[in-house]
């Protein structure tokens, strides 16, 4: 009766997991042991037959329907799911959440408004990078928006009242969005901060829902 290491030797020989030296030694054993040789031959034939009769890849019946069904189910789940945020995504990923869609829109409008203000020279202190928000449009009437500007801090804070509770573990840091650029070719909007760094790139998915493609790491 073979010992376990001998079983493993036969296995490793069969599966090509032996070094050249090990294989040479095992071949010598096979030549000297007809019973072991017969078992090795049978296992080799079995392996060859398994590979022949069990294909690694098979055509999926109704392959196109297979894909479309998965997409349909993903869309259904997305509609029903409360929140699903990738752990590795940046803080701006909450712009994807449905309950923050109005806020996302507001942010874009503010960014666009600021661009207009900057271009028109209204409300921007000379030589400074401070920004003012003169008007805000929030489509969701349940949400009340207001701003607070501090010249000393060179910061404008946007406050939104009426949103659903923010998850306690969500790390939020501030960004001062000063302008946005729309790339029509790829249907994406890039938001820039005061130092002209790209903060986030936002696009739309197949169902016209906002999708955060990338964001700068939290600072």
């Amino acid at each position: 009766m073979k010992t376990p290491p001998e079983d493993h030797d036969l296995l490793r020989w069969l599966d090509g997991e032996m070094s050249a030296a090990e294989r040479e030694r095992f071949d010598a054993r096979l030549a000297a042991d007809p019973a072991l040789k017969a078992e090795a031959d049978m296992m080799q034939r079995l392996s060859a037959d398994l590979r022949t009769h069990l294909p690694a890849e098979m055509p999926v019946p109704y392959g196109d329907f297979f894909n479309s069904q998965i997409q349909r189910r993903l869309a259904q789940e997305e509609d029903q799911a409360p929140v699903r945020v990738p752990a590795s995504a940046g803080w701006l990923s909450w712009l994807r959440l449905q309950w923050l869609a109005p806020v996302g829109l507001a942010a874009v409008l503010i960014a666009a408004g600021l661009t207009t203000l900057k271009q028109g020279g209204i409300g921007i202190p000379e030589g400074g990078s401070d920004t003012y928000v003169h008007s805000i449009y929030v489509p969701n009437t349940a949400v009340h928006a207001s701003t607070y500007h501090s010249t000393d801090a060179k910061a404008t804070v946007l406050m939104l009242d009426g949103l659903e509770e923010m998850p306690a573990d969500r790390k939020i840091v501030g960004f001062n969005i000063t302008r946005g650029e729309v790339d029509q070719d790829v249907a994406a909007t890039t938001l820039f901060d005061a130092e002209d760094n790209a903060v986030a790139v936002i696009s739309k998915d197949a169902r016209s829902q906002p999708v955060l493609l990338t964001s700068s790491p939290a600072r």
Binding site: L54, P55, A56, E57, M58, P59, V60, G63, F66, N67, I70, Q71, L74, A75, E78, P86, S88, A89, S93, R96, D205, A206, V211, L212, L213, T214
Partner: peptide
């Protein structure tokens, strides 16, 4: 996919459905 792009997932489905189906069928 991790950013929510379902079209990217569709590419992965197309790429591996034959192997996954074969394995499941076997």
């Amino acid at each position: 996919c991790q950013a929510g792009d379902t079209r990217a997932f569709d590419v992965l489905v197309s790429r591996y459905k034959g192997r996954i189906y074969a394995m499941t069928y076997h």
